[in-house]
């Protein structure tokens, strides 16, 4: 078991080192997410005021879109010098490799959110500091669920043809509960009279989603990754 987490941490550390040197993923993903928010602002702001409930939806769409981009790039990087083959060739536990990649993706997505949450607050007058704990929990559980499914799909699509378009095609139908829970939960926090029990309900649902899909991914990673 300690070996499992040692391997996972090794992968995370390696990915972080690579990312700190190049900053490619962080910069491009953050910029893309900010653009998403902006584009939606043009669609949903009328006469200087945002439509009701628009903020939560825009936030989560930006998270989902930029997440897809980050997932694709993360695994493209492992494909360039076929390093993914080298990882699979090592005698390490395959699910540990999955957990390592997953943690890296989660970290990246959270970093993006650190920037776009204030941006949404700024552009749409969303009260982002009203319930920081609830909002944080919502973002964290949502990100874990989204990344858990996305990391598995992106990893198994590494060898597939037309993987760029296949990733969103496969990921979005499965991620629908995450989007609904995220958007509704955020709306419950942002609305004029906040509805805390509602937000908690959505966080609980996301927690269940995370548990089920992380388990399922750990269980299927090995058979899915052998050619």
């Amino acid at each position: 078991m300690t070996d499992f987490f040692r391997i996972a941490w090794l992968i995370v550390k390696k990915d972080l080192t690579v990312e700190i040197r190049s900053l490619e993923l962080v910069l491009t993903t953050v910029f893309f997410a900010a653009l998403c928010v902006l584009v939606f602002a043009f669609a949903f702001v009328e006469e200087g005021r945002a439509l009701d409930h628009a903020a939560g939806g825009i936030l989560w769409i930006a998270i989902a879109f930029s997440g897809t981009l980050a997932l694709g790039r993360t695994f493209e990087r492992e494909r360039q010098a076929e390093t993914l083959r080298a990882l699979l060739l090592a005698p390490a536990d395959r699910p540990a490799l999955y957990v390592g990649k997953l943690l890296g993706v989660i970290l990246l997505m959270l970093l993006v959110q650190v920037l776009i949450v204030p941006l949404v607050g700024l552009f749409f007058q969303a009260p982002i500091f009203r319930h920081p704990g609830l909002l944080g929990a919502l973002l964290l559980t949502g990100t874990i669920g989204y990344a858990a499914v996305g990391t598995l799909f992106a990893a198994m699509l590494v060898r597939a043809r037309s993987r760029d378009v296949m990733l969103p095609i496969l990921l979005y139908p499965i991620a629908v509960p995450v989007i609904i829970a995220g958007v509704r939960g955020t709306a419950a926090i942002f609305q004029a009279t906040p509805d805390e029990p509602m937000a908690r309900f959505w966080i609980t649902l996301l927690l269940f989603f995370d548990v089920v899909f992380v388990t399922l991914a750990l269980w299927t990673f090995e058979p899915l990754m052998t050619e």
């Binding site: 070996d3 040692r6 391997i7 090794l10 390696k14 080192t17 690579v18 040197r21 190049s22 360039q80 010098a81 076929e82 390093t83 083959r85 080298a86 990882l87 060739l89 090592a90 005698p91 390490a92």
Partner: peptide, 26 residues
């Protein structure tokens, strides 16, 4: 295995590349 693609991370140094794989092999 030494593949046709070299299985190295270009952003890491030579030492980091070897260390990463040495640790991965435990």
């Amino acid at each position: 295995m030494l593949g046709h693609d070299l299985y190295l991370y270009p952003e890491l140094t030579a030492r980091e590349n070897l260390l990463f794989f040495a640790r991965l092999y435990g």
